[in-house]
Write a protein that binds this DNA or RNA. Structure first.
Length: 177
DNA sequence: CGGCTGATGATCT
DNA sequence: GATCATCAGCCGG
């Protein structure tokens, strides 16, 4: 859920990735820094960072204070404020509005000002109470990382057109030619 | 549609 | 100076 002035944006979360304590692929792995300090807050705070010179990523801190872990939000199915999301994203295709973590952040106008926000309190950004049907949630390896690449820590809704990739990533195939 | 590639800047070594 | 939890645009089928 996102509030921008008088406008409300919302969507169902349909894809996430876990970055648990001790995970070498997680930003908290090398200890607390200026950038990643929000991961070390209590569970339920926003960790926002900027990457590739182009994209913001939105995470939710996920462990007790001082531990360092989070969940990356990778896709939502837009519900409220779809016209505003289209303007923020520069596309009219609803399935492309928030399919992927950078697109999700852009569709919700998320930047570093929202880093550290309490997602369980009234404010500009928070988590609603909708629950996805567990029977429809599939797992796969995570996308776009170079360490701990095989851990099945990506969770996504089966057959959803709003998910960044609809099925598990195939393992790399060697070129034998 | 899938595959490839350049863009672009913060962060850390 | 390398890396990076990505994306848009372009190309071929």
């Amino acid at each position: 859920m996102r509030k921008i002035g008088r406008n409300k944006l919302s969507g169902h979360i349909v894809e996430t990735e876990a970055y648990p304590p001790g995970d070498q692929a997680g930003h908290a792995y090398s200890g607390r820094t200026a950038r990643n300090q929000s991961l070390f807050l209590a569970a339920g705070f926003a960790y926002v960072y900027f990457i590739y010179g182009t994209s913001y990523m939105l995470n939710v801190s996920a462990e007790a204070p001082g531990v360092g872990a989070g969940v990356l939000l990778r896709a939502i199915e837009p519900i409220d404020g779809i016209e505003i999301m289209k303007r923020l994203r520069g596309t009219a295709k609803v399935t492309d509005l928030a399919r992927g973590p950078g697109r999700l952040a852009a569709a919700l106008q998320i930047d570093l000002r929202l880093d550290g926000v309490d997602l369980c309190a009234d404010g500009p950004l928070w988590l609603g109470t909708a629950v996805r049907d567990p029977a429809r949630i599939l797992m796969s390896p995570r996308v776009g990382i170079t360490r701990e690449v095989d851990r099945p820590l990506r969770f996504f809704e089966a057959a959803s057109p709003f998910v960044s990739r609809p099925y598990p990533i195939s393992p790399p195939v060697k070129n034998t030619s």
